[in-house]
């Protein structure tokens, strides 16, 4: 048996082996990114993502894109520069949202009985697709960060509005006006989350007119650009294949 001997018996087997590895690698990448991304996202923007009465037009819009552009940027840095695969952002976001949906359905609803219409996740897909396509067309980190990052922030609120708008219909309740989302938060008792914990818009100056969401989205897009750069380099670093000496002596 010489070292020059082939590992496979035929080209067909080589192709098959390569394809089998594709699936195993994809599975591991998907689940590991899902785990890391999910724990990151739930602890930096989770409460806004968990409950409809946190999904406001100021802080949710600002926080969610900023903290969620992280892993997409890092995974893109690996998959595009090493394999020319323009799916880094979409695969991360899909993984995250699948993880969230499984949890919201089986646990928030299935274990503790919060209706799904109060605890569904935010939609991050539109921004992710645009991020991937810009990277593919431009083949440039800077372009993706600036144009893609901004688009990622800007697309977030309109991408979610069709889902949350029905819950922002006002209702009069015992002499007070509130939205249906507020009412959900009030009705479906969260023993561990008193109302004051909620971080939502509590009134702002109206420098740019009465529309808070576009200003927030724009600011969020702006910060997303910076975060994209930062996490692109994180991604590159995490994609390294270096060895360190294991010789302690």
């Amino acid at each position: 048996m010489s070292a020059s001997q082939s590992a496979v018996r035929s080209r067909a087997e080589a192709v098959q082996v390569s394809r089998t590895f594709d699936w195993m690698i994809l599975f591991t990448l998907f689940t590991a990114v899902l785990g890391g991304y999910h724990i990151h996202y739930m602890l930096t923007g989770g409460d806004w993502d968990f409950w409809t009465d946190w999904k406001d037009r100021r802080l949710w819009v600002t926080v969610a894109p900023i903290v969620s552009i992280t892993f997409p940027a890092a995974v893109q840095a690996c998959l595009w520069w090493r394999y020319r695969l323009p799916v880094g952002a979409t695969i991360s976001v899909v993984a995250l949202m699948i993880g969230e949906w499984i949890n919201r359905y089986l646990n928030f609803w299935g274990w503790t009985y919060f209706p799904v219409n109060i605890c569904f996740p935010s939609n991050l897909i539109p921004g992710a697709i645009v991020l991937d396509v810009i990277l593919m067309l431009g083949n440039s980190m800077t372009l993706t960060a600036v144009v893609g990052g901004l688009a990622y922030g800007l697309l977030f609120y309109p991408g979610n509005w069709p889902v949350i708008a029905p819950l922002h219909v006002p209702v009069e309740y015992n002499g007070m006006m509130m939205t249906l989302a507020d009412l959900q938060g009030y009705h479906y008792v969260r023993t561990g989350t008193p109302e004051y914990i909620r971080m939502v818009e509590k009134g702002t100056l109206r420098t740019f007119g009465k529309d808070v969401a576009p200003v927030s989205a724009f600011f969020s897009g702006f910060v997303s650009i910076i975060i994209y750069f930062l996490w692109h380099f994180f991604g590159r670093w995490f994609a390294k294949t270096d060895f360190i000496s294991d010789d302690a002596s």
Binding site: D53, R57, V169, T179, V200, E201
Partner: peptide, 15 residues
């Protein structure tokens, strides 16, 4: 189309 369907919406109430 959402704005057409839900012309009246208000921000979350807090304070």
């Amino acid at each position: 189309s959402t704005n057409d369907k839900y012309p009246v919406t208000t921000p979350l109430q807090a304070g």
